[in-house]
């Protein structure tokens, strides 16, 4: 089911939603796209297309720092129901990142109750990309730069407004709040959308042709476990973990304990496998003592472990890690070099 709304009618819809629950939209702040709460002030300049925001979508669901337990008084913050919220303008790669995180946090025997609760309450309205960056490589991960399934609603910007596609009952209910603002999308409107999609898709595909590989990522990693390429890249890597902190699929965390008032609390905070202490055990033994071990570890985790455990790569091709890297390390090139068995000299 696809509907059409003019830009001003879509504002009307956003306003209706925002009366009931927080709505986050994507806008430029300085030079970059970020999520911002929808208000009468942020109504102008909402970006429906372009590309993903800077901050990963997971930041809405898996907070950088969260108190997860208070003791000795058995207490559970998860009991506190969260309120519903709406995110408008997540991209295809963002949506994939949630599927990836779901496997870890809510599909196992033991679930993270905080994540599950936020997931239940977060309504994701995705949108088509129109201007991929040079760093975008979703197509190498068998994604298209427009969502095909898994969303509540998807938005496609066309010249005169937006096309809204319904992907779930929840999405349908949202639209029913403003039926009078919608019309059935016309065949020519849908054709316009499909044309835009084609253009964007071929752009992402073209710019990634040079990174195409002869083998799946997983096989390459298994085969090139001892490659000297790892060492060459670890020599460049500063171990700043920028690439991991910005990654929408990294889920590692650390728990720590502290005293508060008369009791204690356990806090969950994002952690990164490029930090030296990450794999250290009592007595000082370290499973990954060198930078080379650690840089390789990220690739094993994302492309071997995740595929073998969950049947998917823990990478969306969003390119955030490439943009973030001060050492100019591009995962796509790392794979190319692994394949060629040498390091490129584009340092």
């Amino acid at each position: 089911m696809a509907f059409f709304a003019s830009f001003s009618d879509f504002w009307g819809l956003l306003e209706k939603w925002a009366q009931e629950k927080p709505v986050y939209v994507v806008r430029y702040i300085s030079d970059n796209l970020h999520y911002q709460k929808f208000t009468s002030e942020t109504r102008d300049g909402i970006v429906y297309d372009e590309i993903r925001a800077v901050e990963p979508l997971k930041s809405f669901f898996f907070k950088i720092k969260q108190r997860v337990a208070e003791y000795p008084v058995s207490y559970s913050e998860s009991g506190k129901a969260e309120t519903e919220f709406i995110i408008v303008g997540a991209k295809a790669c963002d949506l994939r990142s949630m599927e990836i995180l779901d496997e870890t946090f809510m599909r196992g025997e033991i679930k993270d109750p905080f994540y599950v609760e936020r997931r239940k309450k977060g309504i994701i309205i995705t949108s088509d990309c129109s201007s991929p960056k040079e760093t975008c490589f979703c197509t190498l991960l068998s994604l298209k730069p427009y969502p095909e399934k898994g969303f509540d609603l998807n938005l496609s910007k066309i010249s005169e407004g937006v096309i809204l596609e319904v992907g779930s009952e929840r999405g349908e209910r949202l639209l029913s709040q403003g039926k009078e603002l919608l019309s059935q999308a016309s065949p020519s409107q849908l054709e316009g959308r499909n044309k835009n999609r084609e253009v964007t898709l071929s752009k992402v595909k073209e710019q990634n042709e040079k990174f195409a590989l002869s083998k799946p990522y997983r096989e390459l990693i298994e085969e090139k476990f001892d490659s000297s390429v790892w060492g060459k890249y670890s020599g460049r890597c500063l171990e700043c973990a920028a690439c991991l902190s910005i990654c929408p699929t990294c889920h590692c965390f650390l728990l720590y304990d502290q005293k508060v008032g008369e009791g204690f609390e356990k806090v969950r905070v994002w952690d990164f496998c490029y930090y030296r202490g990450y794999a250290r055990v009592g007595g000082g033994t370290n499973a990954r003592p060198t930078g080379k071990d650690r840089i390789k570890n990220k690739y094993i985790k994302k492309f071997e472990f995740y595929m073998s455990k969950f049947g998917m790569y823990a990478c969306t091709g969003c390119g955030r890690c490439i943009e973030a890297c001060l050492a100019n390390i591009d995962m796509r090139q790392v794979f190319k070099d692994l394949e060629a068995g040498q390091s490129s000299n584009n340092m």
Binding site: T104, F105, G108, E109, I110, D112, H251, C252, F253, L254, L255, D271, C273, Y278, A279, R280, V281, T285, A287, I300, K301, E304, F305, S308, K309
Partner: peptide, 19 residues
């Protein structure tokens, strides 16, 4: 096997080796 553990239940990632 003794590996670094934070959560103990397959969420935090710390104890992973191979697959």
């Amino acid at each position: 096997l003794e590996k670094n553990m934070s959560c103990g239940m397959g969420l935090c990632g710390h104890c992973r080796i191979g697959n």
